[in-house]
Design a protein around this nucleic acid. Structure first.
Lengths: 80, 80
DNA sequence: TCTGATTTGTCCGTATGTATG
DNA sequence: TCATACATACGGACAAATCAG
């Protein structure tokens, strides 16, 4: 883990921090294009934030074209 | 209550008066270690001061190690 | 077909964080 | 100092869709 921890008292909001973490995990190849990333519930447990924060972070990456959501199925890594 | 009233025309600033009141309430065991005290909104209603004043008073006690704040969750009594 | 588990969708209430006048 | 507004975050609850058995 290391730096991949959410700081609640940082000037950068948790959802922005988490978005950066998830972005780097995708770039690192942690999750490959076309494959699902961890579920929202899993991410809340892994990073100690609320689901609302997780969903907001995902929304950022969806907006960037890094991820896409399939309703009731999961969140996936976009194809390049 | 009784003496636990904020005097706006006193030489001692409201936030200092409130800090003293809250400190005594903790010492009295009104709120126990690890448990949350009243919310900022609740305290503004209870003592007739603005939220800014409440937050300033809390900041004093946090500085003293009497209280600690969990962002977006509440203000708690420090252990010990 | 049925059942239960999983996942995202949505809404609500409450709390603190921050900024402005 | 006060009053107000909005942003950010947390937690809970329930619905709807999906999937595996």
């Amino acid at each position: 883990m290391g730096p991949n921890e959410i700081k609640h008292n940082a000037p950068t909001p948790p959802y922005v921090q988490l978005a950066a973490i998830l972005r780097s995990r995708v770039e690192r190849g942690d999750w490959r294009p076309g494959e699902p990333i961890a579920s929202e519930l899993r991410l809340t447990e892994e990073y100690g934030v609320s689901r609302g924060t997780v969903r907001r972070a995902i929304a950022v990456l969806v907006d960037e074209g890094v991820l896409f959501v399939v309703p009731h199925r999961g969140t996936y890594v976009a194809e390049r």
